[in-house]
Amino acid sequence: MQKVLSAAILSAITLTSVSAYSAQCTNETWNRVMERGKVVVGVKADYKPWGYRNESGELVGMEIDMAKDVAATMGVELELVPVQSSNRMQFLEQGKIDMMIATMSDRKDRREIVGIVQPNYYTSGTNVMAPKALALKEWTDLSGKPVCGKQGAFYNKIVEERYDADIVAFTGNAEAKQALRDKKCIAWVYDDSSIMADLASGNWDDFEMPMQTEDDNPWGLAVPKDELNCVFGKFMSGMQYNWHQSGALIELEKKWGIQATSYLEKQNQRFGDWLAE
């Protein structure tokens, strides 16, 4: 009798745990992707060299290469959907895209909306490009001054609140840079790696990146929030772990001419195979 009872209890426990698991993980997106044999990835079309268009209109870039690898590993076709900073999370919530690799900074408030998968694949900080003539030194020098920025960047608000700068946000970077040149603002706030690339191009000789880089913020790719701890999220975790371990991200960085970041180097060592030569 006792045996029967304990067996009954045990099976009840297993049943509830199974049903709890299945309630948690419907794997809806994953199953849909597998069913139609196509994964829809949201990428940037306005963020060179992570995601942009070439002259024939195809989307190319470092993140597009990553998306291709994801689709190839899953064994499905890849469809790329260009997203913008302002609509990328909505698209994922609506199910218009299955996942996104779209230069998104991994922020606490964003984790409440979408499932940002660990470990982060990249990181960048905030800095400004300013004319050398102004000789800016500290972030506090921006106080009360107009500063150009790009719409949708999370650090616009931070710079505004922390240093009391007046952010003038533009839809495109070309417009923001033109405004900087026209002296409509004293500095242009953006990702440090992108500013470094501009300064290295020789077109901005009268400009500098004077501040200490701030808010070094990891980037995160995202799957729907419900599937973060399910098949899709765990699969993407594995993808990122493998990219770090194999050094694939460092190679992609080189391929797309992005200045090498110490973050990728560190991750590569951290996740390195201890038995490898």
Binding site: A45, D46, Y47, K48, Y52, R53, N54, E55, G57, P82, V83, Q84, S86, N87, T171, G172, N173, A174, E175, K177, Q178, R181, D198, S201, N203
Partner: peptide, 26 residues
């Protein structure tokens, strides 16, 4: 273009991004 629909202005922006956003492109 303000809503991200891919038409002439949206694609012009993306093309300028592809050309490194030089203000001379505007």
């Amino acid at each position: 273009s303000l809503l991200g629909v891919e038409e002439l202005i949206t694609l012009s922006r993306q093309a300028m991004e592809g050309e490194d956003n030089h203000p001379e492109l505007l």
